[in-house]
């Protein structure tokens, strides 16, 4: 069923923040995150007439993740994961600290691990769906997820120590 621009605008306004944030979690970089979310929405809009009512968000999410995975799939790339994001108006110290912690510990993960962590624990997708969206086996999702969490457990105390020394 074809839907109009007004519906897309409504959808995009509702979905933008979450898409940008998911991309930020996967890249650790605000500019890349905004670019990736914008690309996902462009492609979603280009296909708008074919997307079923209840699938627009899933479509945009898959497009976003695949866009980022496409970039990793090319010869090794590095993402700046140590960058502490700019402080926005209204930020409080806790927010900045939490964000810095998050960026640091996610930075300890490989791109694939980050993607799985974001899909599993930010989007709360079941393992089978993560596997489908990343075109890997459920076993790979389980093992990668487990490895990622182990890295997080290792990285977290170190990060906490660093914070305490500040």
């Amino acid at each position: 069923m074809a839907r109009g621009d007004a519906e897309f605008v409504e959808f995009a306004r509702a979905a933008s923040a979450r898409l940008v944030h998911a991309a930020f979690l996967m890249t650790g970089d605000h500019h890349q995150a905004e670019d990736a979310a914008q690309t996902a929405l462009v492609r979603t809009y280009a296909s708008w007439s074919r997307i079923h009512d209840d699938d627009a968000y899933g479509y945009a999410r898959r497009t976003l993740v695949n866009h980022l995975v496409d970039r990793w799939r090319r010869p090794m790339r590095e993402y700046p994961t140590e960058e502490v994001p700019e402080q926005r108006r209204g930020d409080v110290a806790d927010d900045v600290t939490t964000r810095a912690w998050l960026v640091t510990i996610l930075g300890a993960l490989s791109p694939r691990e980050r993607a799985i962590v974001v899909l599993r624990y930010y989007f709360d997708l079941p393992e089978a769906q993560v596997a489908r969206e990343l075109a890997v086996s459920v076993g790979t999702v389980k093992s990668t997820s487990s490895r990622a969490l182990e890295k997080l457990r290792t990285a977290a105390p170190r990060t906490a120590d660093e914070e305490a020394r500040r």
Partner: peptide, 13 residues
Amino acid sequence: AMRATERPDATLD
């Protein structure tokens, strides 16, 4: 942390 650091005001053009 992933949820708390969301920016609900993030907008795209």
